[in-house]
Write a protein that binds this DNA or RNA. Structure first.
Lengths: 144, 144
DNA sequence: GGCTGTTGCAACCTTAACTGTTACGACTCT
DNA sequence: AGAGTCGTAACAGTTAAGGTTGCAACAGCC
């Protein structure tokens, strides 16, 4: 499957901002987060832009600009982040419509649709069980 | 996320072979399956090759060649198919190692690893609940 | 023994998504 | 006015998947 690191990087950025704010700072810059995640600031800005549209972070422009949390880490779950950065469904249907004259070709899409919906619902439930506060705690609990 | 139709096509192929065999035929050809799935026979052969390595189907060569089920549809689950055709994990880590000198950069990977493993375990459990017999029943239950 | 139909597999192209990078305008504080 | 940072567009590079063509290998049949 597509090795998709968007959720990982987004969680990284949120944990970084949260920790930085607890250390007394107002805002974090995309430059700082990018250094920690070992990537490009534009990548971080793009991701945080999606999180802002979802109401998870806020940004400030001008001198002293940067990013801050819009809510407490306790109130954010991985599901919130997942929905903000992952557009499509987990499993896709055929790229081209199967043969509707064939019994299987005709019935396969509704069948798989129903199955996939149940599975994705379970996935969302699991993602909703993990808060970003949990993530940060786990991060800080790592042996050094 | 990656729109990955491999699981869908593999399930389609298995359901097709299963139904065809119930209609009294010995083997199904990649050509027939490709027509039903509206794709190329080589794509089907590649997928079925992976299912054969997983012990789900068998192939015969020469005249009268084709594919047949290696087990009953009742004994195959979507997890079997998923493991056969999806190599990597659902969520990926950073493409480049994060800054190990940063607390978050150092702890994020083990933290997310643990979280992701739990989620994937749940996903596998859900996939294991659906047999290919369930899939075929749903296919045949679709309104025409 | 040759013919035929199908698998097995390699090679290549196209497409799509994501990442990385550069560039520059917009904004706001000093 | 200057400076630092966001916002965003544009483009190249990478990877995975799907689609296509071609052909050798195989096995049954005449």
């Amino acid at each position: 499957m597509s090795a998709n690191s968007r959720l990982t990087i987004a969680a990284h950025a949120l944990a970084w901002i949260g920790l930085y704010q607890r250390q007394g700072h107002e805002v974090a810059t995309s430059e700082q987060i990018a250094t920690s995640a070992n990537t490009n600031p534009v990548v971080i800005r793009r991701l945080l832009g999606e999180l802002r549209r979802a109401g998870l972070v806020e940004s400030r422009r001008g001198v002293g600009a940067g990013w801050s949390l819009a809510r407490e880490l306790e109130s954010m779950t991985l599901l919130d982040v997942y929905e903000a950065v992952e557009p499509g469904p987990l499993f896709a249907m055929h790229r081209t419509t199967p043969d509707q004259g064939c019994v299987v070709g005709h019935g396969i899409q509704p069948a798989m649709q129903g199955i996939y919906e149940g599975i994705e619902e379970t996935l969302r439930h699991e993602l909703a069980r993990v808060t970003l506060e949990n993530v940060l705690s786990d991060v800080l609990a790592a042996p050094r």
